[in-house]
């Protein structure tokens, strides 16, 4: 009885919506192109979803504390450039640069919290800084990814394609860390009611800095994966990730304010967005229209969510 009621509850539908949208798009792809229903096909379909999923998770950490990171795309591009140059030629310098990036992100979190600045403004400004650094480092497209990254991202396990395993692992690890641990509760609490966290005696400053640092960590993972897949880098390689990552979080059931996020949903959202692009290619729709079509998917899913919320309000 209670089980049945759970399946009818808005909470269930809110959680199921990202998975349903992915299934729906995936079925569409299979219907158009049955050959995609293979190890090789799935590998190809979801390969590029992994860096986007990582960037989406990065964005999700910031959204969890009611902020927004408009620099994640240029940051991922910069990391890709670092990966294709310093990390290849002088690994120590490369690692130091990446650690420096994490420190900068943590400081941004502190700055935004202490001065109560709008995160949109700060990160928009930083996006130009990151882009500038990337252009300085790699003025023309080129460089080459370190071999160990290449090996890692092209690894082909038996039976299940690597991107699916990676996506599942990412979703579950972050879900566990953020949704199940006692530490993740505090992180999400900051988004829910900052004052309550302060009154309970925790330092919101430290929590926000941690969240921003985590954003950087996952941004770095996204950049390195991307450069591994693309083999070379370009200062503009991932600029569209900024909007894709935000869309992915929202598509996955997250909300801009209130600390309501879902790591599993975010990964599914990122995969849905990537898949939509392939779906439209199979339909022979020109890439010019694809951004618009992704927007349409977003609108449809959000409209469905509005319906679910209304269902809840009626109760």
């Amino acid at each position: 009885m209670t089980g049945l009621r759970f399946f009818a509850s808005p909470r269930f539908w809110r959680g199921a919506l990202p998975a349903l949208s992915l299934t729906f798009v995936l079925l569409g792809v299979f219907w158009l192109q049955p050959r995609a229903m293979s190890y090789f096909g799935l590998n190809l379909l979801f390969n590029l979803a992994i860096p986007i999923a990582l960037a989406t998770i990065a964005q999700m950490f910031v959204i969890a504390v009611n902020d927004l990171d408009l620099s994640i795309g240029s940051f991922v591009s910069l990391v890709a450039c670092i990966g294709a140059t310093w990390l290849q030629e002088t690994p120590l310098l490369g690692i130091a640069a990446l650690l420096g990036c994490i420190a900068v992100y943590a400081c941004l979190g502190a700055l935004i919290y202490i001065r109560q600045l709008p995160s949109i403004v700060v990160t928009l400004g930083m996006s130009f800084v990151w882009s500038g650094c990337a252009v300085l480092l790699l003025p023309t497209p080129g460089g080459s990814a370190p071999d160990w990254i290449r090996t890692l991202v092209t690894y082909k396990p038996p039976y299940v394609p690597m991107p699916l395993i990676a996506a599942a692992a990412l979703a579950l690890i972050v879900h566990f860390a953020l949704m199940r641990t006692s530490w993740g509760v505090l992180m999400r609490g900051v988004g829910g009611n900052e004052k309550a966290i302060t009154r309970a005696g925790w330092s919101v400053l430290k929590l926000k800095m941690t969240m921003y640092a985590l954003t950087a960590v996952f941004g770095i993972l996204a950049g390195l994966t991307l450069v591994g897949l693309a083999t070379s880098a370009d200062a503009n390689i991932a600029l569209r990730y900024t909007l894709l990552s935000i869309a992915g979080v929202i598509l996955g059931g997250g909300e801009f304010v209130g600390g309501r996020i879902s790591p599993i949903g975010a990964v599914l959202g990122a995969m849905t967005l990537t898949l939509t692009a392939s779906f439209l290619s199979f339909l022979r729709i020109s890439p010019d229209w694809q951004i618009g079509a992704q927007g349409a998917v977003l609108i449809i899913v959000l409209a469905l969510r509005a319906v679910v919320n209304r269902m809840e309000a009626r109760r």
Partner: peptide
């Protein structure tokens, strides 16, 4: 302890999770 006039719970967290917030020892 204080129960403030405007509530100090995080609306996005569960009842158990809100309890954890005021008890640092609830971990592990």
């Amino acid at each position: 302890r204080c129960v403030f006039q405007e509530l100090s719970l995080c609306p996005n967290l569960s009842v158990a999770e809100n309890t954890r917030i005021i008890h640092p020892v609830l971990k592990g």
